[in-house]
Structure formats: C-alpha cells, structure tokens
Nucleic acid binder design. Structure first.
Lengths: 336, 336
DNA sequence: GTGAAAGCGCTAACAG
DNA sequence: CTGTTAGCGCTTTCAC
C-alpha cells in the first residue's frame, strides 16, 4: 500500500464507517473498545497518517505558524527562532521560516504565501517598520506579533528589547570611565533598534552633560561591512573617538576586524562596547564588554503571545514587552 | 469583508462562475479580457487569497518542504538553511524548519507532523543514521534528501562534505610541519562526519608512517562543552599532543576557550586546526587555520536535488554528492 | 455505538 | 468563452 491510505481505506479495512474512524483518530471516545482496537490495527497496517489539508478545510486551524526574518544568516535570528520553534513544537505547532533579505517586496510575497497556506499566526521582524505593505495581511486578521522591530502603526503585539536602556548603560559606563569622545555605529534609523539605541546614546550624553557631536555618529546597516567601514571613517577624524559603541553583532565583528587592520588597539587606543554577546566577544584580546540580550527568551515570549492570540479569538488590546538587556563588563574599556 | 473571501465570493462579486475565476487565478487563459478584468477587480476588492488547503485536496502538491536539523542554535544549520530557503523561495516553495535536539523521538514526531501537512519533500540531517525510525516515513514515499549526515540504509539522495579529505588535508599539513603527536577531537562515531573525519585522520597518519595512539583520540559530541573537556584530558597526558584537530565549529570554540584557560598557548605550545571557518577563527591570536566547508552551497544543492525528485515522479537511483572542503591556512600551526 | 450524508474551497473534466 | 458538476479527505450533525 503506497503512501496514500485515507480514512476510507482504514474504514474499509476495519469494517466500519469513516465516521467511527474519525472518532478514534480524534480520541473523542464513545467507541466500543473492540471496534477501536480493530481501527487502531488497521491504521497501523496501512501506515495511515491523517491529511491535514482535508482536516483544515473543516476546522480552519492548521497548527502552523510563519516566522519571517530579514536575514537567516545573521546568528541572532536562528537563536530567536530556536526559542520560537521549541515552544511551538510543545504545543503541536510547526513553523515555516523565511528570510526576506531586508526586502519589503519579498516580505510581502512571503506573507502572502504564508496566508495561502493558512498559517494560524505569524511572527515577524519586518524589513519596513512603517508597515504599509502589511495592510493586505492585516485584513485577513491573522494574529501577528512583531519581534525585535516594531510596527508602530499596527495593532499587534510587540516583543522587543529595551534598546534605549541597553545603549544608555553602555554609554554611561564609558562616560564614567572618563571618555568624552564616544562614537556610535548605529543601525538604520528607519528601524526601531537603530533609532532607540541612538536615543539611549544621546540621553546618556545629555544626562552627563557631554556635548553631542554629529561626526561621532555613523549609521550602518547592521552588516559586517558597514561596521568595518564605519571604523575607517572614525579613524581619520581629526579627533578620533576614544570609545566606540557598535550596535549589533555583525557590525561589532566588522568593527573589530577594522581595528585589527588599522592597528588601532582595542582596549588601549580605543575602548569598545558591542551590542549582543557574540562568541567572538570572549576571544578578542582584551575580551569585549557587551550589552547582551536574551535572544531565545525573545522567541519564547513571542510564541507565547502569538499562541494566546490564536487561542482566544476575542480581541484584546495591543501588548508590548521590552525584555531587559544586560551589560556584561569585560576588558575592552579602559579608564581614560 | 473579513479574512475569508472564497472563490465563491469572488465569482458572485464579478458575476461569473467559480470555474472562470479559477481560470484567471491560475492564469490558464481562455477568458475574455473584459471578464478577466472584472474578476481581477473583484479579487482585489475582496482581498481574496487562495486557499492552499482546498487546492491541495485536488492537486496533491503543497509547494511546501520540511527541513529538519538536530540543532537550530548551531550556526552551521542556519547557514545551510539559508541556502535551502533561498532556492526554495525562487521556486515558489516555502520551508518548515524544525530542530530535533539530536533526539530520534523528536525527529520522528516532527517528520510525522510534516507528512500530515503534506510536505512535498524533506531535507534532513538525522539524529540517528541507522535510520530505522524512518521506515514509516519512507513508506509514504515522499522525496527525502540527507544533508551532512548520511542514511546508508536508505535509498535517498545525499549531500555531504568530503569529510575524510578535509581531515586528511588538515593532518597532512600538521605532519608536514613536523608534528608527530597529533590529537583529534572528533564527533560521535555514530555519525558520518564523526567517523569520516577520524578516518581521514588515520589515513594521513598511516600514509606518513606515523603510529596511531588511542590516547590522542577523544570523542566529543559536537558541543562546545565536549571540546572544552577534551582539551582538559589531552593536557594532562604524560606526553600531551603538540597539535590538535577539532572536528566541528562548536568543539573548536570549546577547545580555544580551554586552551586560553589552561594557558596552553595556541600556536606556540600547541598547534590547532579546526573544522569550519567560524568568525572566531580570524580573531584568536594567532589566527586559526581551518578546514572550511561551503555551507550555503550545501543547502542550495540539497534543495536542487529535492526539487528534481519532486518534479520527475519516476524513480531514479540514489545520488550522492560530496562537496569539497578547503584548507585555509592561517597562523595557528607552528613548525615543530 | 455506529453510520449516512452534508459540506469545507478548489480544480478539472465535460457541456453548452 | 463560460458554466455545471463531481469529487479531494475529513469532521460533524443527525438518525438509527
């Protein structure tokens, strides 16, 4: 019997009606033990596996969710994904994973593809926070939760990291060590993380009465290359910074490579604090001080919120969570 | 109109029959332009999105695949996944991603879950190469391709890396530099990569007339911790090795941490070659020599093979590919 | 306890 | 060119 036993086949084999088979498949009880045994046996003999598509047509739910991120290669997202996937599996869900390469168009297509397949909900780190491309999606009112990047114009749940606070702590640390010329390599200002980390930077400067200098703000694009290039720009300044705050894992990597290349000595000529506690952090000499955020927890929480939305159909207000990052002090910042 | 416009709704709105709507949805032509225009408009007005479940019931195909890996957190797999996902999307497929945490049972459940949902094919890095737990799956004869770990007893396509060769090159390099006490921290011998890299190690030793010493073989489990622990064992040997070959990214990381901890100086007291070119490699001092494998290409090829299987229904023999790893020589091996 | 039958939304003959 | 209709595999009343 090849890969297509249906509930019909099982019913025939067990000598009962499909209704009865359906009952035992779904554990609804009300079936005589002997009958049930026959059915169970038939199921095994035929290696019957139920067909979710057919089931979906009646019950609506697919027990399937979509996870859409800008870049699968960036280690940050798989970590978030691992949190999502684990919780999802526990609840009998299974997750699609798609990368958009930061393209709004791809994001739109992926989302459409997901809707077609009837996902019960979606966890999204959008490529475009203004979210206009999502209207079509919203109309279908499928639960959606935004992770890491916000969707300010949409009534959806958010799971973010307190970026402002993380940046503030980093800069504060630097200031308290006596630095006054502090640069920030921040992410795209069109993204929440990009913007908020810059805000935290400014707030710290302001609170400690340090002046703000445009030249010390370089806007990268979260890529390693942009981190690398930014350091180059900083290095040739008349008054180069004595400390640099890099705003994500990849840019930190790029920054460190550039430093190495320029012989601009980490922890001696220049202090550095990175965002995200990457493997690398404990390997460079001196070890890197970083702002660490709980990636897996981010994913777990995101799934939990989504799951709640899926279960209780009634409308509840938009919910926002900001997980706290933690400053892990190591050796890459010297007293000035 | 809320999220459930059907082909019926569209037909009514456009004043035609569902068959005609179906025709334009599927671009089959043979519809008068004016009619088509009316339908297209109706589709937009209703924000109609076709229902894959219903469609699947007729056509069978879901344009959906499953990707099952042992550990989502291990950066290796997301990289492979990115290759898969990109190619898949190009072909209109979308991929489920699941981690099994190296558990055969979880793998089985995940696979079942995937079959229920009608995936057209699966790309699998199995937790158990003997593959007995896969029989149920095979019966459904859904195309399957094994990546990174083989399934010797099954008639499925394989996409592997030439592990033997990669290890051989590494050990050869070490030997040519004069090392005679070379240790290997290998993966579980129950896995192809674990076994083959050890074989390459032995072959090189043999070819260069070096004796094989049990004590220099430590079997890890591909985790960072096991790499760390292995170094501890090696360090206390009466005659510690002068070179270590670590067999995957995580164990390399663990090894480097242990070295650092023991003050066993990389490149001076001990030479190291790692498997996989991780970020870390270029940051430790001295920079790490590694065997690098093309992860993304692995994923791309895997999807291509799977896709071919899905398309041409006729049976073709088992195909095996071994992509070549590359020895990237940096500074972590000194002349002996 | 169990079965018959009505769809779920869509595709694909088959008619007209 | 367009409409009618028969299922795809399953869940779910409603009878018996």
């Amino acid at each position: 019997m090849e890969g297509k036993a249906t509930i019909q086949d099982v019913a025939r084999q067990a000598g009962v009606s499909i209704a009865t088979v359906s009952r035992v498949i779904n554990g609804q009880g009300g079936v005589r033990p002997k009958t049930e045994a026959r059915i169970v046996q038939a199921i095994e003999e035929l290696a019957y596996i139920r067909n979710a598509a057919a089931r979906t047509m009646k019950s609506k739910a697919t027990k399937t969710i979509g996870v859409v991120v800008p870049d699968i290669s960036n280690p940050f997202f798989p970590l978030v994904m691992s949190g999502i996937e684990e919780k999802a599996r526990e609840q009998g869900y299974i997750a699609f994973l798609s990368g958009t390469k930061e393209s709004t168009v791809v994001e739109q297509n992926v989302l459409k593809s997901l809707i077609e397949r009837g996902v019960d909900g979606v966890i999204l780190t959008t490529a475009d926070e203004n979210g206009q491309h999502l209207t079509q999606f919203i109309e279908q009112d499928i639960p959606l939760v935004a992770v890491d990047r916000s969707l300010p114009h949409l009534e959806v749940d958010h799971v973010l990291v307190d970026n402002r606070k993380g940046a503030y702590q980093a800069i504060q640390r630097l200031i308290l060590q006596g630095h006054e010329r502090i640069a920030i390599i921040c992410g795209p200002l069109s993204t929440t993380p990009g913007r908020d980390r810059l805000i935290g930077y400014k707030e710290a400067l302001h609170d400690f009465h340090l002046s703000f200098n445009e030249a010390y703000v370089i806007e990268g694009d979260f890529s390693e290359q942009s981190g690398y290039d930014a350091v180059g720009q900083l290095y040739v300044l008349e008054e180069p910074p004595t400390a640099i705050f890099t705003c994500n894992n990849l840019m930190t990597t790029g920054c460190l490579k550039a430093l190495d290349n320029l012989q601009w000595k980490l922890g001696r000529d220049v202090s550095v604090i990175g965002f995200d506690d990457i493997d690398l952090a404990t390997f460079v000499q001196p070890k890197l001080t970083v702002v660490s955020r709980p990636m897996k927890a981010l994913g777990e929480l995101a799934f939990q919120l989504l799951h709640e939305r899926i279960e209780m159909k009634q409308a509840i207000g938009k919910r926002s969570y900001q997980l706290s990052p933690e400053l892990i002090i190591r050796e890459s910042c010297m007293l000035k």
